[in-house]
Nucleic acid binder design. Sequence first.
DNA 1: AAGCAAAATTGATAAATATCAATAATTATT
DNA 2: AATAATTATTGATATTTATCAATTTTGCTT
Lengths: 229, 229
Amino acid sequence: MKTFSPDDENNKKLVDFLKKLGLNSTEIKIVTSTEIEFKKGENVCKQGSFASYIMILKEGWLKSYIENIHFKNTIFKITKPFSIIGLSCLYGDNHYHFGCQALMPSKVCLVERAVFDNIIKGNNKFASEIIKMYSNSLQNLYDRLNSISNKQSLSRVCDSLIYLSEKIFESETISPIVTRRDIAELSGLATENIVRVLAELKTANAIAIDKKEITILDMDMLKRFSCFG
Amino acid sequence: MKTFSPDDENNKKLVDFLKKLGLNSTEIKIVTSTEIEFKKGENVCKQGSFASYIMILKEGWLKSYIENIHFKNTIFKITKPFSIIGLSCLYGDNHYHFGCQALMPSKVCLVERAVFDNIIKGNNKFASEIIKMYSNSLQNLYDRLNSISNKQSLSRVCDSLIYLSEKIFESETISPIVTRRDIAELSGLATENIVRVLAELKTANAIAIDKKEITILDMDMLKRFSCFG
DNA sequence: AAGCAAAATTGATAAATATCAATAATTATT
DNA sequence: AATAATTATTGATATTTATCAATTTTGCTT
């Protein structure tokens, strides 16, 4: 009997994911042929640089953000395996409109844009799956925009925690790979305010804090706070 | 010689637009068969309602926005003819995640989602044009998010004015169909602050104000202010 | 385990924005 | 053209959030 290393396991999952998107074996080989490792904190892509690749996250976690002139970032998405990054750059001007950084050691498959485009054009099932991803991305951005532009700090932080718990980590526990600053940039607030709001939520028994790890104890309460505005 | 009514003219432009997207005559007929008129202020779609249709704006102007509980809206897009609205609802849960309202009397073609989906699946050229629109929508949302979450009022208002002038009206003059409140909801600010910032910009000779009409006199200045943060 | 660097926390203060109230201007309606 | 209704404007004030400075905690390296 063959034993699988964690890497084999991960390969298998990635292939399964791509199959579900409608890719055949040849296409899967093409798409997974170039794999790059990134260290924690490394840039996966830089805002403004030439957008050569569409990226598939195979292992690890990334954050995608928009940089402004004064190095104040807005994180609009945390990405888990197996997600596709850079779809907004598939057509249009040839530059990344956002930056992306590894939250922990991560492996990413790079697919040249033209190659990716070709597969879409020749594979309707895949095209329609990609369109689903676009829809999801738009909806996620609507959510973030709503949170940041219409709500106050408490509600915004709750939104971020709900997002991280439900959409990203799929657990009541938010991994400590997400820092207070990350939550701040996700909420459009200063780090110090995040700390204060988290302390409030802890007092209210909505969350528990163990060092950098946050656990949601009362999701209903967070959702009520989120609605308050 | 035949003379054309404004309506004929408009029909022709719409057909041209759809041809460029790769649709054939049959598909164009299907897509333009249902046409609805909306009065100024009328809801084209309501956030949360069942998403039956993809919409093509044939005539007029619309605003798309996200509502929060306390009726504070965030406008994320102003739409001109010929734009497609509701792509984010093509798949996914069956509800509109945003509201859309007519800024003036407008005509909209309604296309059932399933019909639209079928055309995409059978027409690669069209699918890839639709994907371009998704990319543009995402990039527009990145821009808005960056403006609202990282910048102060002056820069935000400048961003909104630049957006309206360059992307929407394609003129230095911003049509008075956009109210101060619309600019506020586009900028994530209170209406009163918009008025104050506009007064500042007028004093700086960056814009001219004639009743409700705003004309950009110095686009470079607006862009510098936009970057200040 | 000690020492260092990064991240988190706390309090005090400043700055930015929202809100409220009152008035003026504009547009729509009759 | 007169009136009503909406939208815009202005000033004063209250809230909210950011910033700054100092300290503590945590995680990492040796």
